[in-house]
Design a protein around this nucleic acid. Structure first.
Lengths: 261, 261
DNA sequence: CGGCCCGTTGATTCGTCTCAAAGAGTGTGG
DNA sequence: CCACACTCTTTGAGACGAATCAACGGGCCG
């Protein structure tokens, strides 16, 4: 158990490495070529010649501190962002009340698609830890399209995938009681970590109980109580942010459990 | 009130007209050219020459009876559908429990974008009344793209718009108490009817209390009670499916009201 | 060391679901 | 055209889950 945690942590340290000094284009291109999340950013069928002009696509990156805003509601949309390392939340700000967390984004996932429709971003994206994003300028899509004929279809797939995921999240909120929501949330996080090559059973929560609660439509106290209950029931092992799933099947049982009404 | 209803009903009758006989291509193209929802289906900047080849885009339509399934979960995705007339719901089927309604789609809106990512539809779409859809085959996008360079960007905007709408719905579910959910739902329906040229204050609900409840994460009894309460408070006038908003500002006040927690 | 944010746990309140029954609306067949 | 059946809707009474209010403990940073 502790060894798994160490493996994950070391890999995170690598991904989060101190690369915030100025980087020349050649180095950047090389990074893209070997980037672990290549299949996410690019259509699977890119050939070498196409890869060669990738520097058109990713001229810059941006590094964010914990709590820093990547883009804000109402800002002019001009780029999509691929999370190269780190963790983000998206939220819809409320005037008085607490902000509504609408999603969590981890390494390899795309942020910013909300801005395409109106040309203005429709939510705020905030880094939950030191993070780095690849900036994919959207303004010159036509030119890029000429170089990468598959790219547009790939982007369509990504957006469609997002719609499907949103529908699943919608179903959880509308249909599930609190324990099923949290169980589904934990399993979803694990699945996404596994997709990155990490353990699906042992990982670190990057967000607070309040942020989880906001995302799941629960109070932070309820989230905390549920973690405690899951631990009592031998489903998970939680030490504040460090989480290990000790009974995935049991958790899945609860996640698929009967609805709230 | 009754006059408004009549106007709406007559227009509906027109849109729903008995056109289910076989139609030749020329007639179909003419229909597309004059279709009220043209700006929805096509990028705003289509020129005449482009419009001339629209029949490539809309070779067929499909007419559905009430309760008929447009596509089902797991079906091979090969087309997007534009609702030409009528009303649909999308739902995620559950094994034991009741199905989860994930959305309502009215004239001028696009169904099927869930299928792009995996090539299989990720939900079921069912007609709530006699409806007609334009079938937009997705397989030959590349060819079509050659004829309509703006089309792809337009589709991207539509999908992004959908993502933004889903986020708003997510926020309502996670953040709002029951009365705010229903108020927001009513106002949203009105806004979409207004967008079609109908009254935003007087319309007919095409779905049952149970379907509304499923969509809003409420029991059908709660939905019914809320309608009654809104009526008592002079916010709306409900006669089963016939709804008139008598106090839009009051309703908006409730819809933006303080959250559930 | 002290302040602050985060997390846990308890007691109580409140909102919504569930169960139940009756009424209204719609469609169908005699 | 009316009667019947079915689904949808309304309304009530009680139960239960989750929010709220409140207090304390722990970890992190200056």
């Amino acid at each position: 158990m502790s060894s798994k945690t160490e493996i994950q942590d070391s890999r995170c340290a690598d991904l989060h490495g101190q690369k915030n000094r100025s980087i020349d284009v050649a180095e950047l291109k090389a990074q893209c070529l070997h980037c672990d999340m290549n299949p996410v950013c690019h259509p699977p069928s890119l050939n070498v010649a196409e890869l060669d002009s990738l520097d058109q696509w990713f001229p810059t990156r941006r590094r964010l501190q914990r709590g820093e805003t990547l883009y804000d509601l109402g800002e002019t949309f001009n780029a999509l962002y691929a999370v190269r390392s780190g963790f983000f939340k998206t939220l819809l700000p409320n005037r008085d009340q607490r902000d509504q967390v609408t999603g969590f984004l981890m390494t390899g996932e795309i942020i910013g698609m909300d801005g395409i429709s109106s040309g203005q971003h429709a939510c705020r994206a905030v880094a939950l830890e030191v993070s780095e994003v690849c900036i994919m300028p959207y303004g010159n899509v036509d030119q890029i399209e000429a170089s990468f004929p598959n790219l547009h279809a790939h982007l369509n797939r990504l957006m469609s995938q997002r719609i499907v995921q949103d529908q699943a999240a919608f179903k959880i909120l509308a249909n599930m009681r609190s324990e099923a929501r949290l169980a589904a949330f934990i399993l979803d996080l694990g699945k996404r970590f596994a997709h990155l090559g990490y353990s699906s059973n042992t990982f670190v929560l990057r967000m607070t109980r309040e942020e989880i609660g906001s995302y799941l439509g629960l109070s932070l106290e309820t989230v905390s109580r549920l973690f405690s209950r899951f631990q009592e029931d031998g489903l998970v092992d939680v030490q504040t942010r460090h989480l290990q799933i000790t009974n995935p099947d049991g958790l899945a049982e609860i996640a698929g459990g009967r609805p709230a009404h």
